[in-house]
Every structure is written in structure tokens, then in C-alpha cells.
Design a protein around this nucleic acid. Structure first.
Length: 604
RNA sequence: GCCCAUAUGGCUCAGGGGUAGAGCACUUCCUUGGUAAGGAAGAGGUCGUGAGUUCAAGUCUCACUAUGGGCUCCA
């Protein structure tokens, strides 16, 4: 047996640890390294080692589950003491002490009945066993410590060295909000020191591009304690960035046959009763009273668009009719889930509603999907699509749901677009396709969404006159591509680490005149750029040249342009291109051509 | 909402039961410099909010507010 053998993998991809495998196991051996299978074993055992250390430090602790997850492992447990980040070091130290005792990890099996008796005083273990169907359970033992566990584990503690406990958190027992909250400690482990170090470095890098950090460094947006949580303020730089994104998208909507509309921010509560939001979404709505009547601030824009559609009589010739709005909505998100721009209580959706016939659903959905793809390509985003089906809390008939869901699947299938299914994840009024993009730290965020809705047109009695002069009900397709400007800009910021493409950068050019005599030329160029819709600044503060270049660079602007005697005399510019990290000289005309070309890149 | 942590000048942070420090930023002056920090002087905070303990509280306790890490991943 190899020194480095820590388990086997059978034909089905199941991991068998050395404790479970017989003497002559013929399955593929798993060596101690950073392979997926090896890491799973190592991390699982590290979780146990952590539990053992916690038991020694906090003798009253009781353990629930300690699985391996995408990034490392965790263990949920109940403990009398409060454990904070500062206690993690002590636990790590104890873990290292335990390793020195060179325990083997042994396994034995007992019947479930015996196990129930053995752990009769441990209600968490009993809870765990409730979820086990088998008649026998396995127990792993290392030194004095033993734990009910399915495995797999490394043969001995000597395989565990390169780990780090990363954070302590609270977690509901079984993930149920109404259950008791246990303490959870997360950790990570690798087969070698270098990989652990690389992982920790990567986490540091991810922190550096955190949109909250960059957003405050670049003065894009802010929050304010006195004003309330989850309510973002857009500072001049952020507002410029946002305006550019809005403009790009505005043009893209017009070329795709959308028409701009706008509804009020607040509507009578009866509207929300009719729509079903009051019943299904009321907990998340901000309600108020005006002149003795209840009103609700809109959490969605659909109602406004429906009213506009209904204002004039529509013919089948008007369909598909596409209304779009940068709709400001308010939603009461739980305080604990707020997160920078990625989860806020007031945000602006790039929202549209397409009124069409059932026959037009597939082609409209395809067009939206193409629109989504164009936007994602513009920013080089990877994204995935997911179809969500009927949730528990829903309105509308089952067969209506079925028809709409099938419509979405057909649209994607016919175009060979891959998707996954989220059973029960739909909105209460219809099935949907969600577009999820991955941010710099690998987190997935739902951005765009395409939702088919047969319910609202019925509830609001939306109609059009068909070819045969009868009144029919159109279908509504709700869709957003960015999702919200807030979240999307948050993700963009992390994606680009603040180095936005030229067509989005809040300040696109910074001029640094070498001395006072060059300021006039710089200001003239600034004006010229502004006429082309390009934002620039002139850094003529009384600082040294080097200092001003440094300050300009730190702003992450695409172009820093130095202006001196040479440039003024020859009508040229000396460019520092921050995106390509190159330095070169251009004539004024060449410069204008280069910039306007880059503006064009933002066209979709 | 729940668990844990954090909250000091605009920003980043140090300090720590006896009435606050640094760097950057800011203001003024000198310097007019060719590609990532020239020099000098100066202004600015009562330590998130409220209450309590104490002769004395940024410093201890409690509440609140805000921020951060979590709350699907099954022995």
C-alpha cells in the first residue's frame, strides 16, 4: 500500500476510504494530492479534526453536520460559549496539537438502534439520524473523539497540515429560518502549503476588487447611516458612469422596437390587491396612507405599463407592443441580506413588458435572449440561463403555468441554448428564465430575467381587438437585462476592478498640463471632447507633475494626457494609455479619432 | 429577521478608565516641474446614537443604528 494512498474511487465515482475498502480493493486509488476527490477526503477529515479540537476547548459542544462544500468545509455545532473570529486561532492551534498525537482514524459500524441509544443524550445527533434511512450507521474515531459520519476520511491525522479556519458564522439548523441557530465555522484545506497560500492570496485579490471598496475609492456611490440602510447615493462619478450605461441601453432598446414609458412611484393599494402583490409580496412592500386611503410604493413596474396599455384601445396590429422603463422600485429586503450595491432596498430596473399573442411568445423570448447576449458580450460576461417553474405561493391555473413554462423551454431548445431548471423558483405570477452572471469572486448573481405572465392581463382585463373583431387577452412578458443598474454596476466594478472600458468610464481622459502656460490648451481640448460626449478633467492643481500623474493614474481613467510646450506647439497630445499600459504621441485629430472609435465600441 | 464581529477627524488606521494620535486628503505660501508622492506652515475629531456603572468613560455594561462575515449544499 502506497504511503500516499488515502482512498479509492469506484466506477460510479463514489469515494471509498481506506477504512471502508477491503484488503484487496480493486477500485482506482486516490493519492494524497489536490485532486477533487483527494481534497474532498482531506477537507472532510479536517472538519472532523476541527470538531475534535472544539470538543477539547469547549467540552459541552454538540455537533450537527460537517460537510465538504464548494469552497472548503464547515461544521455546525451548538456551544454554550460565544465563539468569535478571535477564537479561530486557538482552535487551529489545538488542531495542530492533535495532529502531533498521530491518531489513526478508525471506523466501525453499529446498528441504528444501537446508535440511537449511544447518542440518546445528544439531540443534534438524533436529528442527524432522523435523516438516515439505513439500518446501520458508521462511526469514525480518532483518539477519544468519535463522530457519527458517513465518511470518507483519510487514514490518519498525519495527512492534515495545510488548513485555515476562515470564518465563524451562524447557521440555522437544517437551513430552516424557524429553527435554532447553531454556530458554524468555515475552513479550507489543501494537500500542500503552496496551494493554501495561493488560495489565500486569491481571496486577498478578490477583496481588492470589492465594488464597495472601489466604489468609495473612485467616489462612485455611497451609503449614509442617517438616511437608512440599503439606500444608495450616486456621487458625480458614479452618476456619470450610470448615465453612460443608461444611454447605451436606451439606444439599444429603441433599435429593438421598444418604446419608453414611465409610471408613478406610488399607487393605490387596491391596484396591488388586483395584481396579487398585496397578498403575495405585501411583506416586502412599503405601504402608506394618503387622505385616508392606503397606497403602496411600487416594488415592480408592471402595473404602470398595464395602465398605459389599457389607456387606448389596442388592435392585434399593435402587437407585439414593447414598453420599457428605467423603473425605480422599493423592496423591503431583510436587514441582514443587504450588501453594497448588490442587494439594496431601492433600485432601478431596466424593465420592459412585452404585450403579445401566445403565438408570439417564442419569437419574442428569442429576441430578448439575443438582446441579453449582446449586452453580456459587450462586457465579456459569462452567464448561464435557468428556467424556474411554479413556486408554492402562486396565482393562476396549473394548465396556464404548464403552457407558459413549455413556451420558455421551446424557445431555448429551438435555438440550442443550454439551460438548467429550478423547480419551484418562479415568480408567483409566472414561470421565468433567469440570466445569472458570475462575478470576480465567482459568486453568481441573478441579473436578467424573462418572465411569461398570463395572470396579470387577466386580473387587469387587458384586451386587444383581434383580426376577427373579437376581444382577446394578450400575454405579458416581463423582462430585465441588467436586472438593476445598482447590482449590475456593482458587478461591473468588480469585473473590471474599476478599470471600466472607455465608453463607460466616468472620467475618460485626464489632462495634466506641465505648467500654467499649457492650461489653456488643455481646457480647449476638454471642451472639444465634451462636444463629442467624452468626459475629461484638467489637473492643473499646484502639485508637482509627478504627483498629478500619480493622482490621475490612481483614478483608473483610460487616458492620462500630458500637455507641455511640445504638444502646444505641434498641436499634439502625449498619451498614457492605462488600458494598454502604453505611452505614445498623437496629433489632435488622431486623438479624436481614437477616442470616438472607442466610444463606438459601446454600441449594441 | 437570526448568529458572530466591527463603529476613533473626508479616507485608512493606531491608542486605550483621568478630558485624543499618525499617514493620506484638505487650506495657504514657496516651487513651474516632461510621465506614479518637491518643500513649509495650517485648519479639522470629544472617539456611531442613547442610557447605565464610576470621583472620572472613546476606553467597562446595556439598548439602538449602520457596516462586515454567514444563515442551499445533508451523518
Amino acid at each position: 500500500m502506497s504511503e500516499n494512498l488515502i482512498g479509492y474511487m469506484d466506477d460510479q465515482g463514489n469515494i471509498i476510504d481506506t477504512q471502508s475498502a477491503g484488503e484487496n480493493c480493486t477500485a482506482t486509488p486516490i493519492e494524497y494530492d489536490n485532486s477533487e476527490a483527494a481534497l474532498e477526503i482531506i477537507r472532510h477529515s479536517t472538519a472532523h479534526l476541527m470538531a475534535q479540537a472544539i470538543t477539547e476547548l469547549y467540552p459541552n459542544s454538540q455537533f450537527f453536520v460537517g460537510p465538504v462544500v464548494d469552497e472548503g468545509f464547515y461544521y455546525d455545532f451548538r456551544v454554550d460559549e460565544q465563539i468569535g473570529e478571535n477564537d479561530l486561532k486557538a482552535i487551529e492551534k489545538k488542531m495542530k496539537e492533535l495532529i502531533k498525537k498521530k491518531y489513526k482514524i478508525e471506523k466501525y459500524e453499529i446498528s441504528k438502534a444501537e446508535a440511537l441509544k449511544k447518542f440518546s443524550k445528544d439531540d443534534l445527533k438524533l436529528k442527524v439520524m432522523e435523516r438516515i434511512a439505513d439500518d446501520t450507521v458508521s462511526i469514525y474515531k480518532q483518539g477519544e473523539f468519535e463522530d457519527l459520519c458517513r465518511g470518507p476520511h483519510v487514514p490518519a491525522l498525519r495527512f492534515l497540515h495545510n488548513f485555515k479556519l476562515t470564518r465563524v458564522a451562524g447557521a440555522y439548523l437544517g437551513g430552516d429560518e424557524n429553527s435554532e441557530m447553531l454556530t458554524r465555522i468555515y475552513g479550507i484545506a489543501f494537500a500542500d502549503k503552496e496551494s493554501l497560500k495561493a488560495y489565500l492570496t486569491m481571496m486577498e485579490e478578490a477583496k481588492k476588487r470589492d465594488h464597495r471598496k472601489i466604489g468609495s475609492e473612485m467616489e462612485l456611490f455611497m451609503f449614509n447611516e442617517e438616511s437608512g440602510a440599503g439606500l444608495p447615493f450616486w456621487m458625480p462619478k458614479g452618476a456619470k458612469l450610470r448615465y453612460k450605461l443608461e444611454s447605451i441601453l436606451h439606444k439599444a432598446h429603441l433599435t429593438r422596437g421598444y418604446e419608453p414609458v414611465r409610471g408613478p412611484e406610488i399607487l393605490k393599494a387596491d391596484m396591488w390587491r388586483t395584481s396579487g402583490h398585496y397578498a403575495c409580496y405585501g411583506d416586502n412592500m412599503y405601504l402608506t396612507e394618503i387622505d385616508g386611503q392606503e397606497y403602496g410604493i411600487k416594488p415592480m413596474n408592471c402595473i404602470g405599463h398595464i395602465q398605459i396599455f389599457k389607456q387606448t384601445q389596442k388592435s392585434y396590429r399593435d402587437l407585439p407592443l414593447r414598453y420599457y422603463e428605467y423603473g425605480v422600485v422599493h423592496r423591503h429586503e431583510k436587514s441582514g441580506v443587504l450588501h453594497g450595491l448588490l442587494r439594496v432596498r431601492e433600485f432601478t430596473q431596466d424593465d420592459a413588458h412585452i404585450f403579445c399573442t401566445p403565438e408570439q411568445i417564442a419569437s419574442e423570448v428569442i429576441e430578448v435572449v439575443e438582446f441579453v447576449d449582446a449586452v453580456m458580450k459587450l462586457f465579456n460576461f459569462d452567464y448561464t440561463m435557468e428556467i424556474s417553474t411554479k413556486p408554492e405561493k402562486a396565482i393562476g391555473d396549473d394548465d396556464v403555468w404548464e403552457m407558459a413554462t413549455q413556451g420558455l423551454k421551446d424557445a431555448l431548445n429551438e435555438n440550442n441554448l443550454p439551460f438548467t431548471i429550478d423547480e419551484g423558483g418562479g415568480a408567483f405570477y409566472g414561470p421565468k428564465i433567469d440570466i445569472k452572471i458570475t462575478d470576480a469572486i465567482g459568486r453568481k448573481w441573478q441579473c436578467g430575467t424573462i418572465q411569461v405572465d398570463f395572470n396579470l392581463p387577466e386580473r387587469f382585463e387587458v384586451e386587444y381587438v383581434d383580426e376577427d373583431n373579437t376581444r382577446k387577452q394578450p400575454v405579458m412578458i416581463h423582462r430585465a437585462i441588467l436586472g438593476s443598474f445598482e447590482r449590475f454596476i456593482g458587478i461591473l466594478t468588480e469585473h473590471y476592478a474599476g478599470e471600466f472600458p472607455f465608453f463607460l468610464a466616468p472620467t475618460q481622459v485626464i489632462f495634466v498640463p506641465i505648467s500654467e502656460s499649457h492650461v489653456v490648451y488643455a481646457n480647449m481640448l476638454k471642451k472639444k471632447l465634451l462636444a463629442e460626449g467624452i468626459d475629461s478633467e484638467v489637473y492643473d492643481k499646484n502639485d508637482s507633475l509627478n504627483k498629478r500623474i500619480r493622482t490621475a493614474e490612481k483614478q483608473r481613467v483610460p487616458y492620462v494626457v500630458v500637455i507641455g510646450d511640445e504638444e502646444v506647439t505641434n498641436n499634439t497630445v502625449a498619451i498614457r494609455n492605462r488600458r494598454t499600459r502604453e505611452q505614445y504621441n498623437l496629433t489632435q485629430d488622431e486623438f479624436m479619432v481614437e477616442l470616438t472609435q472607442q466610444l463606438q465600441e459601446g454600441k449594441i
